[in-house]
Simulated assay, not measured.
Amino acid sequence: MISKLKITKYILAFALMISSGSALSVTGVALVHGTGAQTNAYDDYWESGMVESIRLGLADSNNLLVVNCDFEEYMWDAASSGCLATQLYNFINARNIDDLVVITHSNGGNVMRWILSNPTWDSRYPTIINSVRWVNAIGTTSAGTPLADAVMSGNVFEASLGWLLGYQSDAVRMQQTSWMDYYNTNWLLGTAGRPTLPVGFWNIVGSDVETAVWDSDSYCGGYTLNLGLEITKAWLNSCADGFVDCTSQNAAGSLWFYDTTYTAGGEPLSHNQSRRQCFNLDVILRNDL
């Protein structure tokens, strides 16, 4: 079943296609990772099964980009949004993409939202914005996460979060809840009381973490990683994916769906599982192309 909001996505896209005469648009997809300095996000962040399943939704399988950038920096930094802009811009021009679907995860949503919110910051931004159909944002930290506050406080909790969030990098500092509130108020579009984003920003919200040893679903994406998220969930609201509260995941743009609404078996998606081939998420994203 397709949600009413998702139907709205299709109606808007069809209207745009008719009005612009773009019936022969060249569709592409870009996968944008979260916090971390990635050099092989294909294998290390998304994993091949997820990427190749999504690729099946493209008419031209070559029109897929897996971004690798240093998202340990502030979102406006050259190594962060500058790197993302370079890779998106080059991909769009090399493949003649004029219908780009961006799939992003976690802090990658903030970096992508920086580009969408600040079109005059970089001469490449308008080309990127004009080429984007919409962004599918999974588990984004749009309003920050209390876990970033815990890391920056320098307490013992920091050590248990290094594997998940990294240590006291600028990207972690940026994702503190008060800092994201400032950015959302002054620099970023799409949150309550702010102008809307120039393209759709559709949220997939992960609502829980399951780690029952007898349940095979708890092992999707790696049991140890899910167990770590089960522990960190204690610092979050009851509705959270182990890394970010549901309210933060849906703070910018529009809700597409909560995980259990469409996943196979109504399974929740932990923050780790929402970037992996778990519970038909890959098929949902593929069909959205």
Rank of each mutant, 00 (worst) to 15 (best):
T263Y: 00
S218I: 07
Q87K: 00
R95L: 05
N226T: 12
I92R: 00
G193V: 15
V102R: 00
T120Q: 08
F257T: 08
P268V: 08
Y45H: 14
L189H: 04
W179Q: 10
Y223H: 04
A79V: 07
N203L: 11
I7P: 05
C69G: 04
V244Q: 02
S22D: 13
W187Q: 14
N93G: 04
N40V: 03
L56F: 03
N186L: 15
A159N: 15
F279M: 01
L164W: 01
G221F: 07
S61G: 08
M50N: 05
Y182R: 13
H105R: 02
N250T: 08
F201T: 05
E158I: 13
A85M: 05
W187L: 15
M174Q: 15
L147R: 01
I204F: 05
P195D: 09
S20N: 14
W121V: 13
T140C: 12
R55Y: 12
A59S: 13
N110W: 02
L229M: 06
I103W: 00
D98T: 10
L197I: 07
V26D: 01
W235I: 09
N107M: 14
T27W: 00
A264C: 03
S131V: 08
L281Y: 04
L65S: 05
E72D: 11
A13H: 03
D43V: 04
A159E: 15
C69T: 09
L281H: 03
R286G: 14
A264Q: 08
Y74Q: 07
I54Y: 02
V101M: 05
I138H: 01
N107Q: 12
E52N: 15
W256T: 07
G206R: 04
P195Q: 12
N272W: 04
R286H: 13
S25M: 07
G242R: 02
G221W: 04
A234P: 10
D215M: 01
K9R: 08
V156Y: 03
E230S: 11
Y182G: 14
A252I: 08
Y182A: 15
V67H: 00
T261P: 00
S254F: 08
H271I: 10
D77S: 10
N184C: 12
I7G: 11
N62P: 09
W179P: 05
G222P: 10
F201Y: 14
G36S: 09
S106V: 09
K233T: 09
D98Y: 03
L164V: 15
S169T: 15
L116H: 12
V67Y: 01
V29I: 13
L56W: 02
W179I: 14
D245F: 04
L197C: 06
V283R: 06
N280P: 04
V132G: 07
H271Y: 14
N62V: 03
N107D: 05
T86F: 04
G36K: 07
W163Y: 09
